[in-house]
Design a protein around this nucleic acid. Structure first.
Lengths: 149, 149
DNA sequence: TATTGTTATACTCTATAACTATA
DNA sequence: TATAGTTATAGAGTATAACAATA
């Protein structure tokens, strides 16, 4: 294989650029598909964090999800309107609001995780080996996200 | 391992839900990081498509990128302002505009693909085996995207 | 004063609907 | 009439700045 005279591409940078493309496009597709789903991708992401970490304060939640506090205020308000989370004010420090998942929210997560008609699930027409690869990749990318926190 | 009495989760659906989360969060991170970069993720995605398929009409480009024509009008206008693509009107059918990449746009893509200071590249502190896994995963997900077109 | 969260406001990305120019 | 693309407008998601309540 012949390389041009310019700087040789860095393998990690090349992979990163490729991942960036596929992630951008998949995220767009997921957003478009989200209309028929119950919650938006952002809300789903926050709901999952609340399930895993709740009861959790709004501040901690926005830090974990890497959005600014005003954004999390909105997201949580939407989830509360849908009955998927509930908030309670801390008795000792009444500035603090803690969020936890409701049985309805828990059911939604459980249902989503077993729903084949999700956009991605319906497209994952893949072999066992490919499934294993994607599972590993998910773990690696989750680690990438955490390491940036 | 004990399963509850509810519906057993579908493995593909579970994987899809997990991928959805990691893609949503990574896309958000990429968007935030994009401020210091030259173009937004959407513009970068369109620019890559123009590189690969151009000269291409706006209609075909919006179909390939899966956005509506008005969205592509905006994206291409931004890329044109940046001098990364240029348009030319079809001589035979003057309704049609074709877009192609400029040398500046080509240089930007080449540079991006070898730049280690991209958000993802700087985070990809991974082993060769993990790099191989992500490379395979990228290929699988690219196929998933194409199959939905 | 400092901290937690909210409200006000604005920007980006995307969509749908209505329009223009051309065929 | 039909098609390619644009303009007008709106909604989601996010940000920053200013504010309110509490400590």
């Amino acid at each position: 294989m012949v390389r041009s005279a310019t700087t040789p591409p860095d393998v990690d940078a090349e992979l990163a650029a490729r991942l960036r493309l596929v992630i951008t496009r998949l995220a767009r597709r997921l957003r478009q598909q989200a209309n028929e789903a119950d919650v938006t991708p952002s809300q789903y992401s926050a709901l999952s964090a609340v399930e895993r970490l709740g009861p959790i304060t709004l501040g901690d939640l926005s830090a974990v999800e890497r959005v600014q506090p005003p954004s999390m205020t909105r997201i949580v308000a939407a989830l509360e309107d849908l009955g998927l989370v509930e908030r309670e004010v801390d008795a000792r420090d009444r500035r603090v609001a803690r969020v936890k998942i409701t049985p309805i929210g828990q059911r939604l997560l459980n249902r989503t995780r077993s729903r084949k008609d999700l956009y991605l699930a319906s497209r994952l027409n893949i072999s066992p080996a490919e499934r294993a690869t994607l599972t590993e990749a998910a773990a690696i990318l989750e680690r990438v996200l955490e390491s940036g926190e």
